[in-house]
Design a protein around this nucleic acid. Structure first.
Lengths: 340, 340
DNA sequence: CTGAAAGCGCTTACAG
DNA sequence: CTGAAAGCGCTTACAG
């Protein structure tokens, strides 16, 4: 049953104002009135209507998470899903509810829905779209971008130090003795793939073992399937190149490539060492487990929400951007030892 | 800027009623008035306040998805996440927004939040809790249970035919010539793990190759880690048992066990065939890829939403329960051929 | 400490 | 075809 404050007031023998005061716990109420109201609320299992509340307080305590993805997975995405989990958990802690929504393409539909629902704030994940940004900006609702595909001025970005991560990957492989490394670089239109490759490449140049253009392949998407098929297509080329290691700009591509190599009976890491980037759950589970550069997705999600909450409450937000330091995780796929 | 219907009315030189009529496209309006209003709306990028609308129409066009999990992952869960993705997609198609929320324990907190927000309906995923059910039931909001841990009368359940799936698994392994099979059975308090084992066991009894109690191990949770560590603990026992195949009641357990076996240099499927249940994405990616019994999670999510929408619109809902037929997916881990 | 009144931004009959 | 009025369920000053 959906009771209203009016019904509670009636049964408790007080006015609606008084009921409101005890519910929101602000303003004075006599102990007697308070207890009577509380009792009726209990009996009726009354649940205040958050819509009506939001109506007058101009605050919904709802936020929206927009995940722009062309295809599934959305929430179950091994990378974005982790960020989402952290947002859900930290939002719940501060009594926010969260709308999760997705849009396949350059449409303003999802953001419009969220705006009409009067969310207090928005978190955008993945692909960044100018028209969506403008739509939100124009409406004046606080928002934050997590792992956006592009940096845009004036937008608060939460990202990893991908270039630094690329360097760490190169450092790890070269320190193991690898000189001839093959790179699988995801879509260069996406900020993180671009920076990871850039960092890796720069490091190699400083080592005076620059990456030849022929040592880089570009899978069409940052997926397992593309990692697999790219490796497959490049197999002859790869073999003739006598590469001793592979660096992929994300774990999914690395895993796909590994799967192909294992099917060719290549021994990993003895014959070829492999490393990825992200540290998605599967990386540790695969056999052999995948050496990678860990991006702290939980922390990114948590911070995104925390900053958004500050923005909502109009508190001072120190940084306009937030960068996370990636961490090398050595696992079976690079063996951790020298390879002649 | 947040404009109101009043502002639009003022600028268009009509009454609020008229504005309302053109927005919701019901009732008569002169073409002239209509166009004028539309134009102002465009100029101001007016977005109707869904809260106010919901207030009077008693309909929010929001649903809530409650995922009861003790730990992470939540949305990124390889099984529940898929269901969630399907719900998100089909909900968007009918212009619903969806709240995603989670609760760690036997609390009524999340459901109360959703109820206060006046969602039109609720989808419960995973662990089923009596007090939560009662809380929702009592409030009179339609809800549906997906893959619940227990069957409860009067609750609409969307589940897989797990017992039948267990039989299919047994049929597949025995048809390959396996007689001595080791089983890793997840928590028997959960409906699906229980039924999968039951179906498997029954089939074996009919084959007159019954499962000995010593051929079943019970990992403490349905996770990769538990699959791995259980296999590790049982390793000596397993070897002495001369088992030629393993059936795990879900993929995660199977994958964990496989990882351990591979690290012991066991050849899969030549020495030991392995199969799981669910067909999570990772099953196909693993090396060797995992033979499994596919549960159509997308379809389960889609149907859950579709039924919920019917319930919300008070349409007739034929079945009170919905069961999905699982499907055998043969992959590398059982080789697909006879093993002497 | 408490109640009556106004108002949040819409929709929905009801007159006209 | 259109506008004034009431009302959805709350909160928030304002008197008292």
């Amino acid at each position: 049953m959906e009771y209203t404050i009016k019904e509670i007031a009636l049964r408790a023998g007080v006015s609606k104002s008084t009921v409101s005061r005890v519910i929101s716990d602000k303003g004075y109420t006599s102990l007697e009135a308070r207890e009577k109201v509380l009792q009726v609320i209990q009996e009726l299992k009354y649940k205040p209507n958050a819509l009506a509340r939001a109506m007058v307080s101009q605050r919904t305590y709802n936020i929206g998470v927009l995940i722009y993805r062309r295809h599934h997975p959305i929430a179950s995405h091994p990378f974005y899903g982790k960020i989402l989990d952290a947002i859900l958990t930290s939002a719940a802690r501060l009594n926010y509810s969260v709308f999760v929504t997705t849009d396949h393409e350059m449409s303003v539909r999802s953001s419009d829905f969220m705006l009409e629902k009067r969310v207090d704030g928005l978190i955008l994940i993945s692909r960044l779209q100018q028209n969506v940004i403008e739509n939100i900006q124009n409406f004046g609702v606080p928002y934050i971008m997590v792992n956006g595909s592009t940096d845009v001025d004036g937008v608060i970005h939460i990202v990893g130090r991908d270039e630094e991560g690329g360097r760490k990957a190169a450092d790890h492989l070269t320190s193991l003795g690898h000189r001839n490394i093959y790179v699988l670089a995801g879509p260069q239109t996406h900020r993180s793939h671009h920076l990871r490759l850039k960092g890796f490449r720069h490091y190699m140049e400083h080592q005076e073992t620059p990456l030849a253009a022929s040592s880089i392949a570009y899978p069409g998407a940052s997926t397992f399937e593309e990692g697999y098929s790219t490796m497959q297509k490049q197999w002859d080329h790869f073999r003739s190149g006598k590469y001793s290691a592979i660096f992929a700009t994300n774990d999914m591509i690395a895993l796909g490539a590994m799967k192909f190599l294992l099917e060719q009976s290549v021994r990993i890491p003895e014959q070829v060492a492999v490393m990825g980037f992200d540290d998605i759950d599967f990386a540790a589970m695969f056999s052999p487990s995948l050496t990678t550069i860990r991006v702290n997705m939980e922390e990114m999600g948590t911070q995104a929400f925390t900053m958004l909450d500050r923005l909502i409450r109009k508190e001072q937000v120190a940084e306009s951007n937030m960068e996370f330091e990636p961490e090398l995780i050595v696992r079976q796929s690079t063996g951790g030892k020298h390879l002649g």
